[in-house]
């Protein structure tokens, strides 16, 4: 399976969360927002000027900075087959 960083997904792409390489504080917040391994995540849009990412997990829309998204590995939909 090919995993990539969440921060490299393009708008409209979907993926499955593969791993969270984060410290504890970030991990807690991500978990509370619904970031769990195996969950489907959609990248909705990226802000201009290297701004934050807008992602969707289930029924929740979330923004996170690219620097935080770098710690999240995902398997792009279609890459695992």
């Amino acid at each position: 399976m090919n995993t990539v960083r969440l921060s490299t997904l393009k708008p409209g792409e979907s993926a499955t969360i593969a791993a969270l390489h984060t410290d504890e504080a970030l991990y807690h917040r991500l978990a509370a927002m619904g970031f769990r391994i195996g969950k489907r995540i959609d990248l909705v849009r990226r802000a201009k000027f290297a701004g934050p990412l807008h992602v969707r997990i289930g029924t929740t829309d979330i923004m996170l900075r690219r620097s935080d998204a770098q710690h999240i590995d995902v398997t792009p939909a279609g890459a695992s087959e």
Binding site: A25, L26, R29, L30, M33, P52, H54, T60, D61, I62, M63, L64, R65, D68
Partner: peptide, 11 residues
């Protein structure tokens, strides 16, 4: 600011 900046975008 040491809190992760992850915000919900509510409907």
């Amino acid at each position: 600011n040491n809190e992760p900046f992850i915000l919900e975008l509510p409907p």
